[in-house]
Design a binder for these strands. Sequence first.
DNA 1: GTATGATTAAAACGAACGTTTGAACGCGGG
DNA 2: CCCGCGTTCAAACGTTCGTTTTAATCATAC
Lengths: 245, 245
Amino acid sequence: MATQTGETRSGGETRERILDVAEVLFTEHGFEGTSMRLITGNAGVNLAAANYHFGTKEALFQAVFHRRLTQLNRMRLDALDQMELEAEGLPLKASQVLEGFFGPVLAMATDTRHGGHTFMRLLGRTYTEPAQFIRKFMAEEFSDVISRYSDALRRALPGVPLAEIMWRLHFMMGAVSYAISGIDALQLVSGRFDDDPAQLAPRLMSFLLGGLRAPLPDLISPHAQLPTGGVGDGAFAPDFGAARA
Amino acid sequence: MATQTGETRSGGETRERILDVAEVLFTEHGFEGTSMRLITGNAGVNLAAANYHFGTKEALFQAVFHRRLTQLNRMRLDALDQMELEAEGLPLKASQVLEGFFGPVLAMATDTRHGGHTFMRLLGRTYTEPAQFIRKFMAEEFSDVISRYSDALRRALPGVPLAEIMWRLHFMMGAVSYAISGIDALQLVSGRFDDDPAQLAPRLMSFLLGGLRAPLPDLISPHAQLPTGGVGDGAFAPDFGAARA
DNA sequence: GTATGATTAAAACGAACGTTTGAACGCGGG
DNA sequence: CCCGCGTTCAAACGTTCGTTTTAATCATAC
């Protein structure tokens, strides 16, 4: 009220406010579906302020990711460091590795007070976004964590080929992503049921461990590596063929 | 060359061509990121033709989905009908149910000749899109299949609560979605490795069955229902708290 | 051969987009 | 007191968007 136009905000408050609002709106409407005007409007700041602080819309999007991913991956690496320290050179248990990798994700996802929930939905959604500039920095942000954790998993599951571990890590990331981002999608499709967020973690962890430690599949050509458990019945009807009218 | 301007196309060829191109471009750039001009331009048809045939961009998007989803869910229901017929009233095996549900998906996903591969990536990506008009008809297209298959799963896994089955179905859909849409995302993050598409199905099926049949988690409040297998160690560090600077 | 109805072409519509501009503002140190 | 610097402001830039409009073109029936 002191001056004619808007009041001046302290320090980096405008910047942080833009980041917070952008995180929510990018989650709700996607990158292309969110306009700079919508972001700055909801944040109560001037349109040009966004370009002043971040340059371009792409850079703003990256800044949203960088702020959270740095924190997330730091938590993951710290957890792994501590577990490996306590293990004194012995391989970790698979459940420990999973907890180190997905624990921070779930903690962030169920934290509604600091916006982590919103971001994790955005992350899951963005992981499959093919936009070039997104893929680029996603790879950079993740490569360290992936290599450290795939290594820990390889030691936790001796005899399982590395390719299999990578695939299962990939599958697990999909399950976690859906677990976080698709709760309403699930309700939408199946009506209401037990969705207590406090029970999501044990549910998910049990599922992930079951999948990670499942018997190895019968692969087509190469030498089978471990006993399989009657999984390979049925060949997934590979002939899709001329089914399209 | 017979006439001054373009040649006329037969019957519904223009319509089909628009659908095919739209499917590819929606997959690559998303709904908001794909313009009608890009679609019609790549299809070699006039811009107005798209609005003539489909009315609006949203209706075109729905048409893309309807064409494939109808086929996909028909395959799923047919497979379930036949399996239940052959079972003569006895419950199906969990592996059968999974194969009926995800088999058509994988068959479509690995079929590069008829564009199914493209569509399945689009489906996985769209499942978590929060756009209202998308959620609406996704629910309609899927509700039949979900209720039939969740019922079959419930009979295949007696003693497992329905809520648990729905959650695991949800987790599995996430894993399958990533398996289909994120192959390059995986390579991007971990370098090249074995990605023979013919081996994706057995790999995925093994993982899914392991997760589906995993021991039930220790839930916080309610009565435990089945013996659990030492999964509940660690509580996923629920205090995320003031970690943000 | 020509009238008819379906389909396409080309151009234009207003609105919304990301970004830039140049002036005004608040506030610290001379 | 005022000047310089970081920041915010209103306004405008040129482009692209989804959609509509008007006229031309085609296949077909008479």
